[in-house]
């Protein structure tokens, strides 16, 4: 890899903009595809471009063979995002765990006493109301939203915004009974059952989690399953 290519790649990553690196395996010629990339060494024909586009949208690096030549297409997408609504105890465990798993975490809580740097060192915090905060965060399909406050005043506006967009995961903390009431409120607000079925609730895999850290593990496990799917097709 040329140092100029490496530098452009790092700049794209720092700017949180997507990049793709195409390498011809035989010989190691490379073309970087991103803003401000240096001139490439590999010609990107239509067939190769199609492979790059597919890898980009699948968010998955891989090899491609075109006209007998092997290419490696490495996708450098910005980190997936996890938006936690509620700067509560569970969020204090989930934020660092999710960061370890590669998520860029934002904690949203308008209650200034909760969303503090002391409680969430190094975590991006928003003290706007959840609907404003989530709208500003511009949810995409590489984003997950989890509500944790137990307070309809805070959780519901967040769910309104999340259900109006297409995050890959929406989870809401609360018992089945709590969730039943929540569904009633959301139905009254005009959401249909197909839309409401997108909410994972009670949030997390059923692993008997009790402590905040254990609940965080179950949520992170469910996020992971949503991303990749179980290897056994869920039969095991």
């Amino acid at each position: 890899m040329k140092t100029a290519t490496l530098k452009a790649l790092l700049a794209a990553r720092a700017a949180k903009t997507p990049a793709a690196l195409v390498t011809e395996i035989d010989g190691g010629a490379q073309t970087l595809l991103c803003d401000r990339a240096p001139p490439g060494e590999v010609a990107i024909g239509a067939a190769l471009q199609a492979e790059v586009d597919a890898a980009r949208s699948a968010d998955r690096s891989g090899t491609a063979e075109i006209d007998g030549k092997q290419y490696f297409i490495q996708i450098f997408n910005p980190p997936r995002r996890l938006i936690l609504v509620g700067a509560v105890h569970i969020a204090q465990s989930l934020a660092p765990m999710a960061a370890l798993a590669g998520y860029a975490v934002t904690v949203v809580d308008p209650r200034g006493a909760f969303a503090t740097e002391l409680r969430f060192p190094g975590v991006s915090l928003s003290t706007e109301w959840p609907d404003d905060a989530l709208t500003a965060l511009d949810i995409d399909r590489r984003t997950a939203v989890v509500t944790l406050t137990h307070d309809p005043k805070l959780d519901d506006p967040a769910l309104h915004v999340a259900l109006g967009a297409y995050p890959f995961y929406i989870g809401a903390l609360g018992s089945r009974k709590t969730h039943g009431k929540r569904l009633d409120r959301l139905r009254a607000a005009g959401f249909d059952d197909a839309t409401l079925a997108r909410i994972h609730a009670p949030v997390g895999l059923d692993i008997g989690a009790v402590s905040p850290a254990e609940i965080a593990i179950s949520v992170l496990a469910e996020l992971t399953r949503e991303l990749h799917g179980p290897k056994t097709g869920g039969k095991e």
Binding site: S93, L100, P121
Partner: peptide, 19 residues
């Protein structure tokens, strides 16, 4: 239980870090 206030640790395989 008390949750320790730890900063998110760096990822052990962070591609940014490696590059």
């Amino acid at each position: 239980t008390k949750t320790p206030n730890i900063a998110a640790p760096p990822r052990i395989d962070d591609p940014d870090d490696i590059l």
